[in-house]
Design a protein around this nucleic acid. Structure first.
Lengths: 363, 363
DNA sequence: CTGTTAGCGCGTTCAG
DNA sequence: CTGAACGCGCTAACAG
């Protein structure tokens, strides 16, 4: 079926071992035979069999990426980045989808080590710490986006405290004082950290933290809708909403559209984690960019580092942070407290309907 | 490091082959030893090594999915579906991203066969037909979404002629007569087929085909913007636009937003291929659903079929179609030609701005 | 029904 | 510098 090392060796009238040495470039062969073998291998269209090689070396040239889903925009770019980087290095990516489920994660992990993966980048659920810790003895692991608190694994995180702080401060600087926050569950790293950044920014500006403005929920669009309604129905609704729960964004947008709330005129909206259509949306949605691309790149870097250092890598830093960035687009605007004070009630349909262009047409 | 078959055999005081037979369940062992071996294998935590097994059997329990990207919503759900289905059957998915590039596709294909994948589902670029044809001799292949005309491979396609027909007819039934079409490049199957469906629907209703209403372009958002502007700037602009080029949708939405064109009041909009946020968007965007989920499922079914039939499968049907469905949401509305005839000029900003709610708030 | 033997394709000793 | 031999873990012939 396919040409093997033996074929090459025979054609070159040398032994398989010589052929092996020459082609793997161990430098333990004469320059001449080396070149000769490479040439004839190419002529024959020889391709080493990774399976056979793996059986011998214990490696597979396979690296796994385990994420929760492909709906989340960050996971999409991470998958693309990891795949691209690895391919360039001769690795293939095994993409696994764990659904943020402990059982699925556990199952997946065991079959992955079965396949003798050379490395693993995982967004942990946080519920299989022991297993991860065990696996880490056999294969280099890098945690991404979330930390598994039960482990001591190398971890690449977004700088969520900073990101939430930057975003909140931005809104404050625009004059907002009542800033609604829709954030992730408190039992996730990101949920906690983004909340803390929000609070820090508020404190720094001596704005009292109003618990009724803070909603933590599951990572689904419905959360956004529910929380957004709750926020808008407040006696004193916020003038800005910071959606720091990425998945909730859709729900928020729906509710604001349904209620004909003009963004940013009636309400400023700041979201977390970019999506391709955010900048195509009108108004283009301002975001705090968590740096998915850089997170993925760094995770790959760290993984490769550990794969090179094979085993003796229990040194050095263990946790990395990729800074967040504020990307200002058109969904946040200056809030004039005095001016809008006239309307006590939540933004009425009529007022929303009356506000025409959120910005002048560009074309 | 990990417990091997030998370990199990020793513990059970049998030969490796007996152990192998018992555990693989060939039925060539006594009931007793079978159960005994299974038990002690479990106790020892034995996990078969797929690499070693693969070297022997020539299989890898690896199935590859090669798509163009993960930005396209259809590819996302396909990846999720394929991964889930395969995992349930003990296979791992190798996800590769080819970027719709001939060279990348070619490279990827060769490294995939190197890894002795047991099967391949590929969205072909159409430029590596010969290579695909060759590979197909060694490994079961199913083409998805696009056909590679240079090959005779089993192919699972969306019913694009039907989908475009359904969509166009829907708009016609709503009273639209000038229907703009933004569609994919003519050198792709989907591009051609969707165009044909559009034309058929028009013909059927005796509506003349106006070439100025038809725009074919590359699969990028910019295409949508450009084409949408061209359409709107026509002396007699369309009353509805059918965006049958999925990637172009973003561009169209931007332009309509920029020009403050109220959907569906000023313009009906129908898109192709669903995205999660379409139904969260306000107005919720009506679509022609290409059935990405079912396409993926069918592709997996067919692939598994061929993998079972190993080699002797040059029989039976070679091409499948997954029917399209019209999903009516809120972006299309009845067009009253007489009433709107008063405004000859393209929808003006003022008129757009005046139209408030696209539909009554639900909440 | 079971043990023995022989590779799968490759890397890696160990002698020349 | 090169060839011969061995084994990675497992399955599949062949005997018993």
């Amino acid at each position: 079926m396919s040409v093997t090392l033996k074929d090459v060796a025979q054609a070159a009238r040398v032994s398989v071992s010589t052929a092996s040495r020459a082609l793997t470039g161990t430098g333990l062969t004469s320059e001449r035979t080396q070149q000769r073998l490479t040439r004839i291998a190419r002529e024959l269209g020889y391709r080493p069999n990774p399976i056979a090689r793996g059986l011998k070396t214990g490696q597979s040239r396979l690296v796994a990426l385990l994420v929760h889903n492909l709906t989340n925009a960050s996971f999409q770019v991470m998958a693309e980045v990891v795949q691209a980087r690895l391919k360039a290095l001769g690795y293939q990516m095994l993409l696994c989808i764990g659904g943020d489920d402990a059982q699925q994660e556990s199952d997946t992990l065991t079959t992955l080590v079965d396949h003798r993966i050379d490395g693993l980048i995982v967004v942990p659920t946080g519920k299989n710490g022991a297993q991860l810790e065990t696996l880490a003895k056999d294969v280099p692991i890098v945690c991404l986006v979330r930390r598994d608190d039960a482990t001591d694994l190398e971890t690449v995180l977004a700088d969520d405290p900073q990101g939430a702080y930057l975003g909140t401060r931005h809104l404050i600087e625009l004059g907002h004082k009542r800033i609604g926050l829709i954030v992730g569950r408190r039992d996730t790293t990101s949920g906690r950290e983004r909340l803390s950044g929000y609070i820090r920014a508020l404190r720094e500006s001596d704005i009292p933290v109003d618990d009724t403005l803070i909603h933590a929920g599951h990572f689904v669009p419905e959360t956004g809708a529910t929380c957004c309604r709750a926020l808008l129905d407040l006696p004193r609704p916020p003038s800005a909403i910071f959606v720091a729960n990425h998945e909730a964004t859709l729900g928020v947008l729906r509710v604001t559209a349904e209620r004909n709330i003009a963004i940013p005129n009636d309400l400023s909206l700041l979201c977390y984690e970019d999506m391709p259509w955010f900048e195509w949306h009108r108004p283009a949605i301002s975001i705090v960019d968590n740096g998915a691309r850089d997170l993925a790149n760094l995770a790959v870097d760290r993984l490769l580092h550990r794969m090179d250092a094979k085993g003796n890598g229990n040194d050095g830093v263990r946790e990395y942070r990729v800074g967040a960035r504020l990307v200002q687009r058109d969904s946040c605007r200056r809030f004039d407290a005095a001016k809008s004070a006239k309307s006590k009630s939540p933004p009425s349909k009529s007022s929303a309907a009356k506000s025409p262009a959120t910005k002048p047409a560009k074309v």
